[in-house]
C-alpha cells in the first residue's frame, strides 16, 4: 500500500516535471507528448471506473471518447462560423462550456447504452458495448454534416480564461489539472460506500444482492460516470490535435484504452497513467526507429501480459491489489 502510494506519487510528479524540463531545454514537442499522455491517461482512468472497480469490460469506450471529441469539434465549428446549433443555441469556443457539453453528451449516450448492455455480462457485455460503438462509428463516417470520415478541423484551439491555450505548456497544465482532478475523483469513488458496493459487485454479485443492493443500478451509475470522464478526455484530445475524426470512435481506440489499463495495472489508481506513459513513449520511440514498429510494440505488450502480471504499477509496487 505504502509502496504503491510512493509509485503513484513518483509517476504523477514525473509527468508534471518532464514538460518543464523539456520546455527549459527548448524541446516543446515533448510538452505535446506529455499532454497526449495526460489526456489518454484521463480517458483510461474513466474506463478504469467501469473496468477496474466494477469489472465491466467495456470494449466500446471509444464511443464516449469520440462523442466528447465531436462535442468539442461541433461546438467550436459553430462558434467559428457564428452559426447557431439546434434550437438556436450558439456554439462556443470556451473549454469549460465544451467540457460540460462533452460530459452531458457522453453521459446521455452511456445511460442509453448502459440500460441495454448491463442486462448482459461477461463476454456478451464486451461484445454488446463494441456493437454500440461500431454503430456510432459507422454513423459518424457516413454522416456528411460534420465531415464524415474526413473529420472536422478546429482551426484555433478553444479558449480557457486567463491563458493562451496555443502555448504547449499552458495546454499541458490544463490537461494535467483535469487528469489530477480525475485521479482524485477515482480515489474518492473507490473509497466511498458506492465504490465499496461496486467492487463487491465485481467479486460477488450474490452477496451484494443479499444485503439488499441492486447491482444493476450501481453499475449503471458507474458506467455513466466512467463515460463522462472519458468524454471530457475526448474533448481535450480534439483540442490537442485541433481535429476530430471517426477514428477516435473506432474499435482500435477502444482496444487501446483497455491496453493502457492492463499495461499499467487494472483497478489501480495510477495504472492508466503508467500505461499511457509506457505506451505513448514506446509508440514514439519505436516509430522513429523502424517501420515495423508495430511488431515490436506487440512483443512488448505480449511480454507484459505473460510475465508482468499486475502491469507496470504491479511490477513496481508489488502484487497486492486492494479493493
Amino acid at each position: 500500500m505504502n509502496r504503491e502510494t510512493l509509485v503513484n506519487a513518483l509517476l504523477i510528479l514525473g509527468l508534471l516535471a518532464a514538460p518543464f524540463a523539456a520546455d527549459a531545454m527548448g524541446e516543446p514537442f515533448y510538452v505535446t507528448l506529455a499532454t497526449r499522455i495526460a489526456i489518454l491517461a484521463l480517458a483510461a482512468t474513466g474506463l478504469n471506473i467501469a473496468l477496474g472497480l466494477g469489472g465491466l469490460v467495456s470494449f466500446g469506450h471509444a464511443a464516449f471518447f469520440g462523442i466528447g471529441g465531436y462535442a468539442a469539434g461541433i461546438l467550436a465549428t459553430h462558434a467559428f462560423n457564428a452559426e447557431p446549433l439546434l434550437f438556436g443555441l450558439p456554439g462556443t469556443n470556451q473549454m469549460v462550456s465544451i467540457w460540460l457539453a462533452a460530459v452531458a453528451a457522453a453521459g446521455m449516450a452511456a445511460l442509453l447504452i448502459g440500460l441495454i448492455s448491463l442486462r448482459t455480462s461477461g463476454v456478451y457485455f464486451i461484445m454488446i458495448t463494441l456493437a454500440f460503438a461500431q454503430m456510432i462509428y459507422y454513423f459518424a463516417i457516413s454522416w456528411p454534416a460534420y465531415g464524415g470520415e474526413d473529420g472536422l478541423s478546429i482551426y484555433v484551439r478553444n479558449a480557457f480564461p486567463g491563458t493562451n491555450t496555443m502555448r504547449p505548456m499552458s495546454f499541458f497544465l490544463i490537461a494535467a489539472g483535469l487528469l489530477l482532478a480525475g485521479l482524485a475523483f477515482f480515489a474518492l469513488l473507490r473509497n466511498s460506500r458506492f465504490g465499496a458496493a461496486l467492487q463487491a459487485g465485481r467479486q460477488n454479485e450474490i452477496r451484494l444482492a443479499a444485503v439488499g443492493i441492486a447491482p444493476f443500478r450501481i453499475r449503471l451509475v458507474a458506467f455513466v460516470l466512467s463515460a463522462m470522464m472519458t468524454g471530457v478526455a475526448g474533448a481535450l484530445f480534439a483540442d490537442l490535435n485541433r481535429f476530430v475524426s471517426p477514428s477516435m470512435l473506432s474499435w482500435h481506440m477502444s482496444g487501446e484504452l483497455i491496453v493502457l489499463i492492463i499495461l499499467g495495472g487494472v483497478g489501480r489508481l495510477a495504472g492508466p497513467l503508467a500505461g499511457a506513459i509506457v505506451y505513448v513513449l514506446f509508440e514514439f520511440a519505436l516509430g522513429g526507429v523502424t517501420e515495423h514498429w508495430q511488431l515490436f510494440l506487440g512483443l512488448v505488450l505480449l511480454c507484459v501480459v505473460l510475465f508482468a502480471r499486475g502491469g507496470v504499477v504491479g511490477l513496481l509496487a508489488g502484487r497486492a491489489r486492494h479493493g
Partner: peptide
Amino acid sequence: HLDQVLATFALILIFSEG
C-alpha cells in the same frame, strides 16, 4: 478475459507486421 484480450491483441500486431 482481460489478459486474453490484451495478449491476443498483441498477437494481431505481431502477425500483421510480421
